[in-house]
Design a protein around this nucleic acid. Structure first.
Lengths: 65, 65
DNA sequence: GCCAATTACGGGGAACGTAATTATA
DNA sequence: TATAATTACGTTCCCCGTAATTGGC
């Protein structure tokens, strides 16, 4: 795991939105998505990232949509 | 600051010897020295790295020599 | 229909290896 | 005198940009 991964995770966790998180990080959505996946794979499939982040993203999407 | 820097710092702090630290890290002495310098510059000249590490290295050298 | 995930391709820079020299304790 | 710092050069690899497509709610 690298600090890079944690920075990306924090951004997504704060924004609950990949596009905004990427903007905040001054990178594009594609590398951000890749980085989050790297972190997930690094921590394992049933990781905090996957369970928390994706579910919260789903909820956010449901609430906003 | 990156985790890379901290890993190098820990190795040198544990070994108190650049050659052994580099071996432990599976890198060469030159990049290790550069990395430590980067960390010092990142934290500032009067940093923990400089004051502690180098003085302890000096002591270790004095004691062993 | 948004939003995220994925894919493919390329470029740029960071980090390292190697070798050799210099400084220093 | 051993050890660390520095320099120079080349190379590899990582990360990102871009663009386009696919998948999922």
């Amino acid at each position: 795991m690298e600090l890079r991964h944690l920075r990306c995770f924090l951004a997504v966790a704060e924004e609950l939105h990949f596009a905004r998180a990427a903007e905040k990080l001054h990178i594009e959505q594609s590398p951000l998505s890749r980085t989050i996946k790297e972190l997930e794979e690094d921590l394992g499939e049933q990781s905090f990232v996957h369970t928390n982040l994706s579910t919260r993203l789903s909820q956010a999407g449901r609430l906003s949509g």
